[in-house]
Structures are given as C-alpha cells and as structure tokens.
Design a protein around this nucleic acid. Structure first.
Lengths: 223, 223
DNA sequence: TTGTCGGCCGATCGCCGACAA
DNA sequence: TTGTCGGCGATCGGCCGACAA
C-alpha cells in the first residue's frame, strides 16, 4: 500500500516511525490496545520501556472494512547499540510531501439510504478537477480508487440555490457496499498526476482506549 | 439436527447406517467423492474394503448453503468381533415413521426475481393446513422453520382460473436469501404436531461423481 | 455554507388472471 | 394441472430546490 495514501487515510495524528529508527516499545500501552486483559502480575517482571529498532513496517488495509493499519517488526537493542548508527534510516517521511486530501464526517443525510453526498465547497474546488462553471448545471463524472485499487464512479454536480457541490449517482452504492453510517468519515486524496483516491475511516465503535479493562500492570509490576 | 428433518432433506435415496452397526469402509469411493486426486499408487497397499463399526453419527447442515450432511466416526474391527454383538444398535430407523413431506424442483418462474411460487396441488392439500375453501380467494400465512431454526413466513393463496395454490409475499426474500436458482429443489415437511419445516437441495453443480479425475486406485492397487 | 426536508418522477418489485402445454 | 407471460398497481430509490441553521 502506497505510503502517502495510507497516511491520508490515517489522518495527520498518526506518525509512523521510519525503518531502522529507534523506538521504545511500551508493553502496557500495547496491552491496553488489545481487548484481552493481560495480567502483568503473573508474568515475569516486564520493563516499562524496551528500546528497539524498527526492522520492518508493512502498511496494510483490512479487506472488508478498509481500515488501514501497520505491522511493525521490532528488534530489541541493548545499551550496546554499536554499529547501529551505520544503518540507513529508510522512509524518512517529510510531512511537506503530504498529498492534498480532504476528510469529512458523514452526516445523517450523507449516509441516508436514497440520498446523495453534500460536498463541502472547499473540497469541491481544491481536490476535484474544476467544473465548467459557465454551464447552467455543471456536471462531471469522477473516477476514484479505494485502498484496494477498486474503482468507484460518482456523478459530481453543482446545483441548487445557492449553488452547492453534490455527489448523486454512484454515491449510495458506495455507502451501502462499504456499510458506512453517520459519524464515519470519508477521505478524498489527489496524487501528483491528478489521480483521485477515496478512503474511509470508521467511527470508533468502542473497544480501544482501555476504559473497561484497566491493566493491572501499574500496581504490581511498578512504573 | 433432528433425524427425520435431516432425512426429509436428503431424500429417500440416502440411507444412514445406525450407530453400532457394521459397515464396510470403501477407500476408493471416499476418495472419488473428494475433489482431491488421491494417488493410491504411492500409498502403502490399501485394502478395497475395511470392516468397521459406526461409533458415532452427527447430522449437520451447512450454515450458509443449508446443505445437509453427516459426520460418521468409523472404528476398524477385525474378524475377531467378539463382544461386538452386545452393543446396542441405536437409531434403528423405521422408514414407516418418515414425516409427510413434499419436494419440488424450482422452475424458472419459481426462482425468477419478482415472482411467486407455484405450489403443486397435492402439496397444497396434504402438507399445509386446509384453506377456507368457501372464501372467494382463500388465504393464509404459513410459518415454517429451516434447518437452522430460522423462521420464514409465506402468504399462501388459492386464486386464478382454474384455481391454483401459490406462495406470494415472503417467497422472493426466501429465494434471494438462500440464493436459489432454477433446478434447485425445495422440501416441505410436516411434523406430527403440525409444525412446518422448509429445506433446500442444491442442483448438483458438478464436482461429485469423479468423472473428471478418475482415481488411479483400480489399476495399481488391485481390486 | 450546508444539513434536512418534502415533492416528485421513474424504475423496479411483485401480485394478478389469461392462456396454453 | 401448472409453467410462463404481459399487464399494472404499489412501493421505493434517488434527484431536485426550498429553507433555515
């Protein structure tokens, strides 16, 4: 999966460490992000932080939900990291190279069955190719790919009074196929060559954050 | 899964050996019913028939296709089957106890989208509760369960000239949900207490019978 | 600027009797 | 007796501008 595409789907809050960079692995944080209640009390004493080297990063997308995620391989390194500095740090991401993209949280009307998609003006003017504004009802068909490379087509119109950007034909099939509901987000991206991409972000349907199952790590294994 | 229900779905051509009965296991037959090409030539010499005792039988239905099948556990017995005759033969099936049932192969019209189901007169009169024939257009709602216990409702009417039994409302959702096509069969069953059940039999969509991949068993391992 | 609503038009679904195999 | 067909009415999807937040 293309890195910029992946990054546009995660949003700017997510930062991936480059390959060969040094990171701290934080067992408690990892445990709390799983739904399994890990009892550190019964395990051998686990350090709070473990210095590691990122040996590989795989950018992936769930085949059904389109949710993007990463698989990272971490190799523990001791204080003796001699020779480590020779390794080239790959994928040094320059945030200035980020693709132009636009995200919108779906409203009830956007996700209603039998409805269209209300395109925010800024998105309609900066992400998509310009419409023929001289026409009475400017209209074009937008073709975009999702994270799996599947093609989706949307009729993009500018109509109503006051004038507004809308997706009509093609939108509802996309919503149904991706099982999107109000609160989920949609992301549009434009590559340098003008190719358009569409991604989705699910509304957090609970599970992450660890509010329900507080790890017993703090109290027993120390901090 | 209830035995009589299971039996009605398989049809009368299928006979299940009772638990604790003696059977011959026939390796070549088993191999030909799998789609894997088993090469008996490379295996240690396999007897043509292996005398076994049926130690357990599980009647099952595929969660998606509704196809019914059985899992049998066979235990090899030698010529010395002393003590075997003491075991009680369970599930001795008396074919006289078979449930009243009716099967029909779906026509194009039955499986057409937007159509109903033409109920053969015999089925409409013997399996389902009697309609109120004094009415102009006799009508009732039939409730039946499939092999998974899921409930399906069908509007059963008697109309047209000449009068005929038909399923209208409810039929198309059933066909779509079960992905039935012309050539597939439908089975109606009535339990002693009057409860109705509905089962399906898929048209053989190839694969069984071993026409494509003839086993090499005959020629090499002997008969 | 844009979320929601009601109107409305066309497509599809599905119920019907006619008819013939 | 019953498979298939064309008709047609009801329902639904989905496109529209109005309006207000």
């Amino acid at each position: 999966l293309d890195f910029k595409l992946w990054q546009a789907c995660t949003g700017s809050t997510v930062q991936m460490p480059p390959v060969n960079s040094k990171v701290y692995y934080f067992p408690q944080g990892h445990a709390e992000h799983t739904l399994i209640d890990v009892d550190f009390g019964v395990l051998p004493r686990v350090p709070a932080l473990i210095l590691c080297r990122v040996s590989s990063v795989k950018l992936l997308a769930h085949p059904e939900t389109d949710e993007v995620y990463a698989k990272m391989k971490l190799v523990r390194i001791g204080n003796d990291d001699s020779g480590y500095d020779d390794l080239e740090v790959l994928e040094k991401n320059d945030s200035a190279e980020r693709l132009p993209s636009f995200a919108k949280i779906l409203t009830q009307s956007d996700s209603n069955n039998g409805g269209g998609f209300s395109v925010p003006r800024y998105c309609g003017e900066t992400i998509f190719p310009p419409l023929d504004y001289s026409a009475d009802k400017p209209l074009q068909t937008l073709v975009m790919k999702d994270v799996h490379g599947q093609i989706w087509k949307f009729k993009h119109v500018l109509r109503g009074a006051p004038k507004r950007h809308l997706f009509t034909t093609g939108w509802s099939v996309f919503v149904n196929r991706k099982k999107l509901i109000a609160g989920d987000s949609i992301v549009f991206m434009k590559k340098e060559n003008g190719d358009l991409y569409i991604g989705t972000r699910r509304y957090k349907r609970g599970g992450i954050g660890g509010t329900a199952s507080l790890s017993r790590w703090n109290s027993i294994a120390g901090n």
